[in-house]
Design a protein around this nucleic acid. Structure first.
Lengths: 186, 186
DNA sequence: CAGATAAGTTAGTGAATACTAACTATCTGA
DNA sequence: TCAGATAGTTAGTATTCACTAACTTATCTG
């Protein structure tokens, strides 16, 4: 439900009421419950949608073959792009809905995150094997470092009222990050 | 109010009610409002407390002179230590309270974060000047990368139910991060 | 010791908000 | 044509929660 996410972006996921959603789509509030038995299920649906959207973004980013460093940057930038084009996502990522209330939503986001980590890890593994990256680099740790950049930048962007250009900032930070992974002398 | 933070850790900052706080400290709920005119002001007080606590941790970590890389790691680990010993903090950091509702809390946390970033940036600047770090390293960007590691790891730790050892995981990731900053051949 | 102040009590209010009940209109397929 | 499903309506409820009113009690102060 793009609508729920759009509203969540404004008021925060935990303050999103069924009344707001109903008003937005032009029906009365109880009509919501003709489509979702509980409010929780709206969030479940959102979780599924998000998982699909992000998976599609990664797939598009890893379509063609590239050297690992480029593939990693492309993946991270794809994630950034998906974040930017999904207002409300960041709020959901840090919401109580996700962290405490809604187990289904949590597991949806969790598995999505793990898939992303796995993709990055794989790229790092091949990069280490090919000698492009430092031999002592732990692929899993390196993947976490890249995810860290994406996550923290997205958070900072959100807190800053989305006032700076997320994509260019991400590109610069990722370059600074990835260059440190390369084997010396390359 | 350590009490508010402790409870916020359990139920989430946005669901923390004045009734819970009152029950916890053994008074009736309206008695809360003898001490704070509005609930919001409880969070303001928490913000001030947090700022002091973190500032103290950084000061302790930067007490003695060290090579920049060590100073940076010490600062980051001090931050990690402060996070670990402040249950509920992570919830607050990602709460709607902070992000939308409470301007005073937001500015308190914000200025604390900026102070941390400034400390790290300074260390990176001297490290670049001394040749310990790559000459092309942007001190501000590098500081953000370190903050990213701390932030994301803390979040992951919180989502994982605080089930792994935060300090040792942080040390390993920070090492992997910082080694990438060093000048080649060092 | 009087009076003020601080800190508590009980009782209650108004606003939100998820969700239900009961009813209605429209579409679809046998 | 008509039975049933689908999707809406209005009206209302139970609960939660920040906050207030009015009163009491203990502590401090001049």
């Amino acid at each position: 439900m793009g609508c729920a996410l759009r509203l969540a972006d404004k008021v925060g996921p935990d303050r999103l009421t069924t009344d707001m959603i109903a008003r937005e789509i032009g029906i009365t509030q109880p009509a919501i419950f003709r489509h979702f038995a509980r409010k929780e299920e709206i969030w479940n649906a959102v979780g599924v949608r998000l998982g699909e959207k992000f998976a599609a973004a990664w797939q598009a980013a890893s379509a063609d073959e590239r050297p690992p460093a480029d593939a990693i940057k492309a993946l991270a930038l794809a994630q950034i792009g998906a974040i930017r084009s999904t207002p409300g996502l960041i709020g959901v990522l840090f919401s109580r809905q996700l962290h405490v209330d809604n187990k289904a939503l949590r597991s949806a986001i969790n598995s999505s995150q793990r898939a992303f980590h796995a993709l990055l890890s794989d790229a790092f593994r091949t990069g280490v094997a090919s000698g492009e990256f430092r031999p002592d680099l732990e692929p899993s740790d390196a993947a976490f470092l890249v995810i860290s950049v994406v996550q923290s930048l997205a958070l900072r962007w959100s807190l800053a009222g989305k006032s700076f250009d997320l994509a260019s900032e991400a590109a610069r930070l990722l370059d600074a990050q990835i260059v440190g992974f390369r084997s010396q002398g390359r």
